[in-house]
C-alpha cells in the first residue's frame, strides 16, 4: 500500500528510464530535471507538487494511467534576440509511478504561482479502516 517511487532514485522502472534517457538528450539535461516534483502523503491520499513556472495550465497535460502519473507539456520561449538564456524551454515529460490505486475520478489539480498541486485521493479500498471486533 505504498506508491513505489523507487524508480525515481534508482531508475529501475523501464518507462522512467526511457524518459530519463530522453531527458539526457534534451536541452533540459538530466541535471536540470523539469519540472521538479515534491511528493507527500497523508491518510487520504498523495499530494504531488510540480514546480512548473511559465507554463499556463492549458499547456500542461496530466495523464493518470493504472500505474503512472504523467506530467507533460511544452514550455515556449518568446521570439527575440537573446542576450542571456538561462530558462530551459521545449517539451518536457515526467512519469511518476503509482503502485497504490487512486480514485482517478477525484484527482484534482490547482495551479498557484507556477506551482501545480495535484491531489490524488487513495481509492477507498486501500484507505486504513477500523474494524470493530464483535465480542
Amino acid at each position: 500500500m505504498v506508491i513505489d517511487f523507487s524508480s525515481m532514485y534508482e531508475g529501475s522502472n523501464d518507462l522512467e528510464r526511457i524518459i530519463e534517457d530522453m531527458f539526457r538528450k534534451s536541452p533540459f539535461g538530466s541535471r536540470h530535471l523539469f519540472p521538479k516534483v515534491n511528493i507527500a502523503e497523508n491518510d487520504d491520499g498523495y499530494i504531488v507538487d510540480v514546480c512548473i513556472p511559465g507554463v499556463p495550465p492549458d499547456d500542461i497535460e496530466l495523464v493518470i494511467t493504472a500505474r503512472n502519473l504523467i506530467i507533460k507539456g511544452e514550455r515556449k520561449s518568446p521570439e527575440g534576440r537573446y542576450f542571456r538564456q538561462e530558462r530551459s524551454a521545449g517539451s518536457f515529460q515526467r512519469a511518476l509511478n503509482l503502485n497504490v490505486p487512486v480514485d482517478r475520478d477525484k484527482v484534482v489539480a490547482k495551479n498557484e504561482n507556477g506551482i501545480l498541486r495535484v491531489t490524488l485521493p487513495k481509492a477507498d479500498s486501500v484507505k486504513p479502516r477500523k474494524i470493530s471486533i464483535n465480542s
Binding site: 506508491i3 525515481m8 516534483v37 515534491n38 507527500a40 497523508n42 491518510d43 499530494i47 507538487d49 514546480c51
Partner: peptide, 10 residues
Amino acid sequence: GLRKLHTEFG
C-alpha cells in the same frame, strides 16, 4: 499532517 516522500524543490 503531510509525510514527505520525495523532495526536489523548496
